[in-house]
Design a protein around this nucleic acid. Structure first.
Lengths: 128, 128, 128, 128
DNA sequence: GTGGTCTAGACCACG
DNA sequence: GTGGTCTAGACCACT
């Protein structure tokens, strides 16, 4: 399920956090699901347990999972909404990125096509 | 001209590099223009000369400026093209970002509107 | 392994970069190998860590090594090819150098002998 | 006659020195010839007179020219021999350069061809 | 004055 | 422990 790139400059724990968010956002993980344990993840990924723990703590502090001592770590009820809300904030950065593309010679049509491609290929069940 | 955010997590030298790229891409700096000197920049920005130097070196190694010891640092002829080419590569990352927005409840219309806003507000003289 | 000449006019960090390239080109360092750490190198060479760091950064930006914060710095897969490609470009400068030798009284035989010596003494296992 | 590249990282004065050496080695300048004056050179090249003066001083200290106050600067009798002698010293560095080419995949034939090309195309009168 | 290199020593994030 | 960033201040070569 999880997989990391040790050669990436992105910190391992951050890769794990982002993947967890992706899984929740796309419905691979749903509220109540139990996350893999620190030990099992650190084993399968050949990563230091501290690193995995850091990712879990981060997810916890963002309210995306709830750690229950002795029982494990579970996706919280409002996890998806929280992530969606945060991602929606990225909409503010979008104009600047598009402007850069425009200045670099990318045409309006290319961008519009790209947008339509994405929306047309969304799995029906994923739309809110 | 240049300005930095000391509180940003983005390294100061990287902020400088990106701003320089912006200036070149938007035509504020054109080929042959002389960059502010290391010392003057470090003074006005209250940043260590070494940090500014690092930014200049980075720009140099990317072929965006040519720094000539004893004379100064000049925007190279093909600077804008180099940047545009690199930015165009970002087009590949765009679908993923839009997909995240879509999954987060942003509608197709919102994104399209955003795109059109950008292209309609481009300075007329700039190439689309 | 690495060693520098403090009296050389060539910058220390550049000496380090060139030695690393030599090591990679001659197979002393192979893809996946871990480079000596910044601190250890700076200790053994009695050089400031920043200077070593600069060399590492340069190698990284040339794609010869991948440095991963917290884990170390590793020779990249295509390092040798990249170096070989660059060195092959030096072939263009060779005629000018030979011409200078010729004009200075070095005979054709002397140069040819030199060439043959080099090729005859290549380690058998190295590709011609 | 002389020409410099202001964008080169090679110092201007060094460019001038090397060009003078080339002119002497190839016979464009012969013993007794008068060098262009500092003022005229600095004018035609749009270079600071100090920079030209530095080049002249360097040539003088190498015994390649003789400055006669009030009369000018003349190519010395043994200029060509001095240069040739120095260049012949470069023969020692040649094997290392060829070895790098060899390790980079350049074949013995390519190098030999290059050598023969140079010697076959030498102007008959230039050979010592 | 310019850019380039280097030292000394600090702090941070990551593992 | 690792690499990455930054400051403070020095020296050099070049124009």
């Amino acid at each position: 399920m999880f997989q990391i790139d040790l050669m990436s400059r992105k910190p391992v724990y951050e890769q794990l956090v982002e993947q967890a968010e992706q899984f929740i956002l796309t419905g691979v993980l749903v509220p109540g699901d139990r996350m893999p344990s620190v030990r099992s993840l650190s084993m399968t990924l050949s990563v230091n347990p501290n690193t995995v723990q850091k990712a879990i703590s981060e997810l916890d502090s963002r309210g995306l999972v709830k750690s229950v001592p002795g029982r494990g770590c579970f996706v919280s009820e409002d996890a998806k909404q929280r992530i969606a809300e945060k991602k929606r904030g990225n909409l503010e950065r979008l104009p600047e990125e598009i402007r850069e593309l425009a200045l670099s010679g990318v045409t309006r049509e290319q961008v519009i096509d790209c947008v339509n491609d994405v929306y047309n290929n969304l799995d029906g069940g994923e739309e809110l």
